[in-house]
Nucleic acid binder design. Structure first.
Lengths: 303, 303
DNA sequence: TCAATAGTGTCTGTCAGACACTATCGA
DNA sequence: TCGATAGTGTCTGACAGACACTATTGA
């Protein structure tokens, strides 16, 4: 900034200081990225008339090494000193899905002690949304044994208790991950407790049960779903899960799967009207009235 | 999980593996926390009738060491291997404000290369909200030379451009930090660019100018304000900035300072009606009609 | 014909923006 | 009295929930 070299209390210039700086004065934690890669798939439907049901899928990797050997974990890996966290996330994402250009968003950084039995690990979680028609890699093709798991998210219990200086509310959330082909079902229960003590509001997450899911990854899944549900309500994030063209019913079903509740068609169409543009195309051979195909209206920004 | 010891491809049990695990196989980045500590203060008012204006204040620390010697930075420090990130944040917070029990929230983790000239540093930013009446430490009392700076946030320019496969929108945001006593004014301009390319939406932040503010801390400030503005609209987060009792006009002014726009009193009162409870107290000697004091209604939860 | 989905019209209640209005204090 | 803030009443328009209704297809 200044032309005069500024010196510190030891009389060192910035240049001298940086040269003498020793990054290994004390032990550093390891930093990893963990990817929550979501997609939406169709479920097979017996009745020729009925539309296929949608399901939310999460990509998991079977661990071939200790710890949690044989369990399923989120794809991820260590962040090296010469790449940004986001680069590390993109690298992980690409190595799992072969897609380079994709929606990705940082979620939360998990830094409790004892998260990883190997050593002190801080994990930065990212969420990515993939349209299944863009997916080149199918489940199981990867050397690591990667697979898509259908995700079910359910609130088991809600609780509220009045306290002296406020109150405490808690929720039990069940996460079930299922892969039909491999006949694997993983599950976990996360408890979220929110305490209000006078002015101070605190939120804690705790794993009550985790079966088949490595590390504290259930918590990350729960957090991601919460974020996804929120964002879906006030952004166009959902289009990252849709193919190039889609019907409004399809889009509505994706909303419903994510939000975990049914929507009314009339209100839904009104709401998303100016986020999409109609095309001249229609669905065919559906066993019922054909439906117009829409395209995402790209000329929108959220900022 | 199982009673049989599971062995990996090298025939090692988990116990053996963990014993042999070397955390120093490669170089790790350093991890720090950076605290964005906000409070709201009254500005002196000449006219005896007029209410004091509110201002949003941010706590900064004058750097006594290289790099950025003499500039102002967010309070923060390295996360040690035997404390959680949140503990490190609380430790930092306590050492700056002397308050242990306070609202705190993780914001974002900044991990680009070259953020810190010393070495590779990953910084996890936290936001804390303090009610000024709870503050025991006044500006400048701290050995580090800490001071509150009045924050002004302004959108300088908004831009939208149509592109082949989508569009690009950008915003220039000016951050001004001012401390009257020290007669210091720091400033910075952050550019936020959002590109929509087909399905893919990307957001980048870039520092166009930064004067007197160390590292990439302007970006963190901009991000925090954005988050604060959002959260204020859909949570009760704002009460963390309020004293035990307050008038609705005061509360409204705090909302206005954060949102950067005026609100209509009637609509405002309707909106926050069930977040507060009235007391029997009134303001006195105000030069105008006394106003009822309210208290935050603690028996509410957001989850 | 009928089961299923596609798509529209409209009533209703809620709520925010707007603004006029009344109330109360102290110099 | 008047300048300032405190606080209320009510009109209006936007919009979401609810639901009835019409349209279209293929076996």
């Amino acid at each position: 900034m200044s032309n005069q070299p500024i010196t510190d209390r030891n009389g060192m210039t910035e240049e001298q200081f940086l040269e003498a700086y020793d990054t290994n004065m004390y032990e550093h934690p390891s930093v990893t990225v963990d990817m929550l890669i979501f997609t939406v798939m169709d479920r097979e439907q017996g009745n020729y008339r009925k539309l296929p049901e949608k399901s939310l899928q999460l990509l998991l990797i079977k661990r071939g090494e200790h710890p949690y050997l044989g369990q399923w974990a989120l794809p991820g890996g260590f962040v090296s000193v010469d790449e940004s966290i986001e680069d590390a996330a993109r690298r992980e994402l690409f190595s799992e899905t072969n897609i380079a250009n994709i929606y990705m968003e940082q979620l939360y950084t998990w830094g409790d002690l004892g998260r990883d039995p190997r050593t002190r690990v801080i994990s930065c979680s990212y969420m990515a949304l993939v349209d299944r028609t863009h997916l080149h890699v199918q489940a199981g093709e990867d050397a690591d044994d990667a697979a898509w798991f259908e995700l079910t998210y359910e609130v088991l219990e809600e609780n509220r208790e009045e306290r002296a200086q406020g109150c405490e509310a808690s929720r039990l959330i069940s996460i079930i991950l299922h892969n039909e082909i491999k006949n694997e079902t993983l599950s976990g229960i996360v408890r979220i407790v929110e305490t209000v003590q006078g002015h101070v509001r605190k939120l804690t997450r705790e794993i009550l049960q985790s079966s088949g899911i490595a590390f504290d990854h259930v918590t990350m899944v729960q957090y991601a779903i919460e974020r996804l549900r929120n964002k879906v309500e006030y952004t166009d994030i959902i289009i990252n899960l849709m193919p190039e063209t889609f019907t409004l019913s399809e889009l509505q079903r994706v909303y419903e799967i994510i939000l975990g509740k049914d929507l009314l068609a009339a209100a839904f169409r009104r709401k998303i009207a100016d986020a999409v543009t109609e095309t001249d195309e229609y669905t065919k051979d559906a066993g019922h009235r054909p439906s117009k195909l829409y395209r995402y209206n790209m000329n929108r920004n959220s900022i």
